[in-house]
């Protein structure tokens, strides 16, 4: 990982700010978001690091992060953020940028176990496909 002047001006961050409606520069890295995230242990880039990477323009690291698929949009973090950053919106914006660029889907009905398809409530299935597929 390396921070350079042109990365800091990366277009990705502008796009993320537009799509999310969030200002990544507002974050002062208190990491309260990360401390309370219920699924943080499964993430490779922690929520406060998502904001930090965005501030530094580390586009590749962001787009390759597992975190984009782990965040449950539970909104625990933004309900506590002292800087009013809606972190899941930033994560969602990254996910959207990625899904568009790749055109692919993270989740396909064929990959779901039959057990899940059979038992899971509609609410869960619809949510997952809205998050993980275009």
């Amino acid at each position: 990982m390396k921070v350079t002047t042109d990365k800091i001006n990366s277009n990705l961050i502008k796009e993320v700010e537009e799509v999310s409606g969030q200002k990544v520069s507002a974050c002062f890295q208190c990491a309260k978001c990360t401390g309370g995230c219920p699924v943080v242990w499964a993430m490779d880039v922690y929520p406060h690091q998502i904001l930090r990477y965005a501030q530094l323009g580390l586009a590749d690291e962001l787009l390759n992060s597992k975190t984009l698929w782990i965040c449950a949009s539970c909104q625990t973090c933004d309900s506590r953020c002292p800087r009013e950053v809606d972190i899941p919106k930033v994560i969602e914006a990254l996910r959207l940028v990625l899904l568009r660029a790749r055109g692919g889907n993270y989740l396909h009905p064929n990959n779901l176990p039959a057990r899940v398809l059979e038992n899971a409530p509609q609410q869960g299935l619809v949510s997952a496909f809205r998050k993980y597929a275009r």
């Binding site: 309260k32 401390g35 995230c37 625990t76």
Partner: peptide, 17 residues
């Protein structure tokens, strides 16, 4: 910044990073 303090019996669990 600590995100949450969970009371756990007579102890307290402090979650942060």
């Amino acid at each position: 910044n600590v995100s949450k303090v969970f009371p756990d019996g007579d102890k307290l669990v402090v979650r942060s990073v």
